[in-house]
């Protein structure tokens, strides 16, 4: 076990080194991400935590090649499974994005094309990346929908996004992200729009599906990050203020900003989980 962990450490799935992202040009240019470095090994869950505007989503978009127009990586390296992705041709990069990186977003209703069935969206992705026949791809998609524990996948495959509940759509989104066996899953605020019970089920699903993959979870919610992440990186105004194991960040935060975030996330306090008086 420790040997695999060590070899995983030596060969991280994702390495980000000195990443900077620039928005706009000339005097009006801003730097949403500045000199950011981290790695994620296989089987590891890293949480990037910060407020809106901290640059955490821009980091996810840079990794997934989804930066909006006028925003670009201005410095640094992104290395996925040993390949520096920023130097790939656009065609190579596209093949990589749907294949080795799976993306999950906050609102699957706006991420899915409303006039296409869930099945047709997933089948197209499976066919493009796995060279499958339509019927083989359909079988694979039904399997994937069952894998994220969606009820009646053989019926849901022909449903439209609006016919699913928010939690079901997020499950379908995760099925799409995992469909082509990516080595890295990037989830950007995947449970922010969901209620507590559905959120917990989706987090459990993400954690389980991470398995031997690397999972990058972007969230504003330290409590959510603490539930599933092995390590946490705290961002403020485009920079990393600290990173470390989840226990270290929560128990002995080194930076004032992290302490502020911890203080802001005080609730829930009740329900048999009160801190034990005098606990060591």
């Amino acid at each position: 076990m420790s040997i695999t962990t060590q070899s995983a450490r030596r060969n991280p799935v994702l390495e980000v080194e000195g990443l900077s992202v620039r928005a706009g040009s000339g005097e009006l240019a801003t730097m949403p991400v500045q000199d950011l470095s981290f790695t994620i090994a296989s089987g590891e869950v890293l949480g990037i935590v910060g407020e809106s505007g901290s640059g955490k989503s821009m980091t996810a978009y840079a990794i997934g090649d989804l930066l909006p127009e006028g925003v670009a990586v201005s410095a640094g390296r992104i290395v996925l499974e040993g390949r520096p992705v920023l130097s790939l041709s656009p065609a190579e990069r596209r093949a990589l994005d749907g294949n080795r990186i799976g993306m999950v977003f906050q609102d699957p209703l706006s991420s899915f094309n409303p006039v296409r069935t869930i099945g047709s969206i997933l089948i197209e992705s499976a066919r493009r990346h796995q060279q499958l026949s339509t019927s083989a791809a359909r079988g694979k998609v039904i399997e994937a929908l069952a894998g994220v524990r969606l009820p009646h996948p053989e019926l849901l495959v022909d449903a439209y996004p609006h016919q699913l509940s928010g939690g079901q759509r997020q499950r379908a989104m995760i099925a799409l992200a995992l469909l082509n066996e990516p080595s890295l899953v990037v989830a950007d605020e995947p449970t922010t729009a969901l209620d507590a019970t559905v959120q917990l089920r989706i987090l459990a699903l993400l954690k389980r599906s991470a398995g031997s993959r690397a999972l990058l979870l972007i969230t504003h919610d330290l409590a959510v990050a603490s539930t599933v992440c092995d390590r946490i990186l705290v961002m403020q105004r485009g920079r990393c203020v600290e990173q470390g194991s989840t226990a270290d960040i929560l128990e002995s935060p080194a930076h004032d900003y992290t302490r502020e975030l911890l203080a802001a996330a005080h609730w829930p306090a009740a329900l048999g989980s009160q801190p034990q008086a005098g606990a060591a």
């Binding site: 524990r149 209620d195 507590a196 019970t197 959120q199 917990l200 089920r201 987090l203 459990a204 954690k207 919610d221 330290l222 409590a223 959510v224 603490s226 539930t227 599933v228 989840t246 226990a247 929560l250 911890l262 996330a265 609730w267 829930p268 009740a270 329900l271 989980s273 801190p275």
Partner: peptide, 24 residues
Amino acid sequence: RLLLAAMPDMRRRVLDVHLVDAID
């Protein structure tokens, strides 16, 4: 109780599989 217990809690810091199971 289930809804409140499902709220992520920094002091627990674990994904309570029994709870997920109960919700499922």
